[in-house]
């Protein structure tokens, strides 16, 4: 896996990796860096424009946007990374197992994913949030319950592909138990593609969270998250542009950096053009 270091070979890779690292650092050090508390607001100071006191202005409760953007990095990164971790792990295992063993399991899961794919994401998420109730963990759950399908499809396709390779045939001939082949031989060869899709999906889930906040079913607004900050600011965009623009830029730059990182990863791992499962990139929009 040391090939991952190849990301740093290009200037673009270095820049994007630096940006992502900066974000992670800023998120970790938010309590130290932030000039105010994330929930402490002064109603008399609401919607104050950027000034020396509040570099990026204040929101509709008089809270410092810079502070909340810093803290928001924690929540947004967590939403993106956690959801991707869950969906990637689950989707990859199910897809690899299905693609490797085929049979009834594969057929059943195939049908389920077809249904899930044909179910509109936004309706699914609104319904799930109504069913589970509000909250951070529930949001991640609602996003994950459908989000794993993309990973499943990719992992299954890759596994099918790997299954026909010589080394798999060879290990079979050597009499290795099949699960061992799957986890030791096949899965490691599937992972590069998965890791590329993962980086692309992190940004996708963060933008999706923003869209859900637009509909009032995202993260509770007292928890600072970029998505909900952007959508909170939409009501006052005409009088206080900074409320949604600052977290918007923060989100944009991070998603950009993560995507570029994914791109560099892709070039390192798989310079070839991919099959369809891959030519359908994570589109940063929802219905």
């Amino acid at each position: 896996m040391n090939r991952a270091a190849g990301v740093f070979a290009t200037p673009l890779g270095r820049i994007s990796a630096t940006i992502v690292a900066t974000y992670v650092l800023a998120a970790a050090l938010a309590p130290v860096l932030a000039p105010y508390g994330p929930e402490a607001g002064d109603l008399a100071q609401r919607l104050a424009p950027p000034s020396a006191q509040h570099w990026f202005g204040t929101d509709s409760l008089g809270r410092d946007i810079l502070t909340r953007t810093l803290y928001g990095a924690r929540v947004s990164l967590l939403v993106g990374i956690l959801t991707v971790a869950i969906t990637a792990a689950f989707g990859t295992v199910v897809g690899a197992v299905g693609g490797f063993y085929r049979g009834a399991f594969d057929a059943v899961v195939g049908r389920v994913t077809e249904l899930l794919l044909a179910f509109p994401y936004l309706i699914f998420a609104i319904g799930m949030m109504a069913f589970l109730g509000p909250g951070f963990a529930n949001l991640v759950a609602a996003l994950s319950l459908k989000g794993w399908v993309e990973f499943y499809r990719l992992a299954r396709g890759e596994t099918l592909d790997q299954g026909q390779r010589e080394y798999v045939e060879a290990s079979r001939a050597l009499g290795q138990k099949r699960p061992r082949t799957l986890f030791r031989e096949v899965l490691p060869n599937v992972l590069p593609a998965i890791s590329v899709l993962s980086t692309l999906r992190i940004g996708y889930f963060m933008v999706l969270e923003a869209s859900l906040s637009f509909l009032g079913v995202g993260i509770p607004p007292n928890i600072p998250a970029w998505g909900s900050m952007i959508s909170e600011g939409r009501g006052v965009l005409f009088i206080a542009w900074w409320v949604s623009t600052i977290p918007g830029i923060a989100l944009l730059v991070l998603v950009l950096a993560i995507n570029l990182l994914g791109e560099s990863l892709q070039e390192v791992y798989a310079p070839r053009n991919k099959r369809r499962g891959f030519a359908r990139p994570a589109v940063g929009k929802v219905r």
């Binding site: 940004g203 933008v207 998505g227 952007i230 939409r234 989100l251 940063g284 929009k285």
Partner: peptide, 14 residues
């Protein structure tokens, strides 16, 4: 990439 990373309602309102 910027196009992909933009929430549609924000861009639309702008």
């Amino acid at each position: 990439l910027v196009g992909i990373s933009m929430p549609a309602f924000w861009f639309g309102l702008l």
